[in-house]
Simulated assay, not measured.
Amino acid sequence: MNELERDRLSRLWEEHVRTPFPPNMRRREIEGEDMVHLDASIAGGVSSSLSEPFDEKRRDALLSCLAAVEKVLPLINDECGAIEHYERLCEMAALAVEIGNAGPR
């Protein structure tokens, strides 16, 4: 992964932590996916990828979350910025997996 992609992930992460969680996604499940848990799982993986070496277990967990968020995105109503929120999570997960695939820094 090049520095531009790493910078993009850092900017998306900063935006994510500044943006409130969409209230309509609390206690919500779509296609068997708990939306709060999905958010937290991706956020944890992204945060780890930015701060420490990325291992195979974390990469696999993020790949699973990426598949889940891609599955539910078309089913999210755009209330309270929910689509934007989960699209950002999707992009961050994909970039973090790329960082992990690039190996140690």
Rank of each mutant, 00 (worst) to 15 (best):
V69L: 02
L12M: 14
R28D: 07
P22S: 09
E98T: 02
E98R: 10
M1T: 04
V69H: 08
G44A: 01
S64L: 00
R11L: 06
R6I: 04
A93I: 00
D34H: 10
C90V: 06
R88P: 04
W13H: 08
K71T: 00
S49R: 12
E52G: 06
A68C: 11
S64Y: 03
A82S: 15
R27F: 07
A94F: 00
S47Q: 15
A67Y: 04
G81D: 13
E70G: 10
I30R: 15
E79F: 09
L38G: 00
D78S: 02
R6G: 03
F54A: 02
R58W: 02
N77I: 02
A82T: 08
Y86G: 02
S49E: 15
S48K: 10
L38F: 04
I30G: 05
A94W: 08
E56S: 05
A61D: 11
L89A: 07
R6Y: 03
E29Y: 10
E3M: 06
L89G: 03
L9K: 15
V36Y: 12
L62P: 07
E70V: 05
H37T: 15
E79Q: 13
S47G: 14
L9M: 09
M35K: 04
R18H: 12
E91H: 09
R26Y: 05
S47A: 08
S51E: 06
E56C: 07
R26A: 01
R26E: 13
E15Y: 12
G32Q: 13
V46W: 15
K71F: 00
V72F: 11
A61Q: 15
N24Q: 15
E91A: 00
L62I: 04
L66F: 05
L12G: 04
L73A: 05
I30P: 12
A96M: 05
Y86M: 00
M35V: 05
L50F: 10
R8D: 00
E15I: 03
E33T: 08
D39G: 02
R8V: 08
A93S: 11
F54P: 06
I99E: 15
R28F: 01
A43F: 11
L12F: 06
I99S: 09
E87C: 01
G81C: 09
G44R: 14
R27Q: 11
S48P: 14
L50W: 10
E84A: 00
A40I: 09
R88Y: 03
P22D: 13
A68E: 10
E31I: 05
E79A: 05
N101G: 01
S51T: 10
G103K: 10
S51C: 12
V72P: 06
V46A: 06
E98W: 08
R18M: 04
S47C: 14
P53D: 07
S10A: 13
N2D: 06
G32N: 15
D7Q: 14
E98I: 01
P74N: 01
F21A: 06
W13F: 03
E31A: 11
S41L: 12
E31M: 07
P53S: 05
A61T: 11
A93Q: 09
G81A: 02
I42G: 04
P74Q: 01
E14G: 04
S51Q: 14
R6H: 10
M25R: 15
L4I: 07
N101Q: 02
M35W: 13
G44E: 13
E56Y: 03
